[in-house]
Amino acid sequence: MIALSVNNLRAGYDPDLAIVKGVSFDVNKGEALCILGPNGAGKSTLIKAMAGLVPSFGGTVRLGPRDVTGLTPHLLVRSGLGFVPQTDNIFTRLTIRENLQIASQLVARSERQRRIDAMLAMFPDLGERPGELAGALSGGQRQMLAAARALLTEPDVLILDEPSAGLSPKLVGQVFDTLRRISEAGVTLVLVEQNVRAALALTPRALVLVDGHLAHDGPSNALHDGALLGELFLGRRGAEQPA
């Protein structure tokens, strides 16, 4: 069953200058994939457009059977999309608990407390001090809270933008362990990453975005040796799906 379907999506910040120049891919329910690509390729813009934060100029985004193209972010969340931006992804002036409480407004009243408690149990660093301001958390803990917030609503599809960016190697390991647990729990996962090796090890499928086009979509192990990936990044291997 298809959980997420992106079809010929064009998006950007200015209608005269598309950053995402016609991208198509389908993601099956429970599948995990990563989107790789050089800096500035448009990876963040692509997933922000899917999350309703950047206007799309053409194409469609479907969640399951539903066309959700152009919906505002809060309606997309209600349709089952979880999105974790790369930076500024938690409310620093609210407490850890308040961050989770906001997300919990989307679930049935009787479920809210149980879900918040479940997230605090899943991430002990957060569970130790739910009353503390989220702004006091370390970089790794912030990513935990951002993921916990998104998971709390039990999204059909979870999209994360470089969750390991700027973290120490030890914390990167922790973040990827968490992502593995999330994926093993059956959540459909779309991961944008610069940490190529860790991403390829986590997700069986990889997309490579270069200059707003998909240059590759296939099994991750095809990219393991690095040579192909290097060529793709440098644009020496052509787009398999020309625009």
Binding site: H74, E98, Q105
Partner: peptide, 25 residues
């Protein structure tokens, strides 16, 4: 209240508020 939390959230970051599921309008 939930309303108050949502207002504080929007005042910190309206885009993120939408991503959290808050109806910013």
């Amino acid at each position: 209240s939930a309303t108050g939390r949502a207002m504080r959230a929007v005042s910190e970051n309206p885009d993120l508020a939408g991503v959290y599921g808050i109806n910013v309008a």
